[in-house]
Amino acid sequence: MNKIENNKAWFLVLPVFVLVAFSAIIPLMTVVNYSVQDVFDTNTRYFVGTEWFKAILNDAALQSALMKQFMFSFTTLSIEIPLGIGIALLMPKRGMAASLCLVLIALPLLIPLNVVGTIWQIFTRSDIGLMGWSLREMGVAYNISRNPVDAWATIILMDVWHWTPLIALLCYSGLRSIPEAYYQAARIDRASRWAIFRYIQLPKLTNVLIIGILLRFMDSFMIYAEPFVLTGGGPGSSTTFLSQALTTMAIGQFDVGPAAAFSIIYFLIILAVSWVFYTTIMNMQKEK
């Protein structure tokens, strides 16, 4: 058989190529482009190589922001995941109560990010906010604009309030998909409540949890609007996370070059952590 040479067929790939180019490659390359140049104005720019990268990696403020960022993601995840699983386990399984629960639990997820920040900003005010006022009345010295510990605790509480429902909903759907026979067999095998959780429920939740943890890690690592509205990154820079530092650098100070280098590093960190997490879990699951 003679193969017909028709290179025009390659044009069929063009639409996808254009789409991907404009949606991903060109914007990313622009950032790469900025990251290796020093830009003064539209006509004056110098190639600086990896200088911005070195500067960013050695910047003490950014290093501390990165550490805070990891701390924040780690803390929120280690609260939200077990709490979400716990809530899912406690939720009613069928009937009106189940539907009602689902709606109530999903509510925080429906609120726009900066509104969440605003809600909590008001909530914590000691003059009109329910929590701030109550704490003051109880004699607790609580002030998120003066005390970094208070600010941290509040941001973490806010994030837990906002995002635990996501984990709970994912786990709930995962739990619902376990056939009744598993629980019956477990009863017959005299499994304890803990054993049922450890050997039936948790293994069946692995897949939804991987998705949940990945989503929550990425989102928490990129958190911006809520702490920005709630604390503005303060007191001092105690709650200034990476994305806020980046925004200040790129838009506030117009340091486009360092900001671009910063963006790339930021992106690579998220990519690397997600990849490491995913491959570790997958390897753990690998068949013997």
Partner: peptide, 22 residues
């Protein structure tokens, strides 16, 4: 009496195994 106290064994239509165990 619950199944655990009747000392009974039951095999279901679809095999129930504990995935993570050997």
């Amino acid at each position: 009496l619950p199944p655990e106290e009747r000392n009974i064994a039951q095999v279901f239509q679809f095999p129930v195994i504990y995935d993570t165990m050997t």
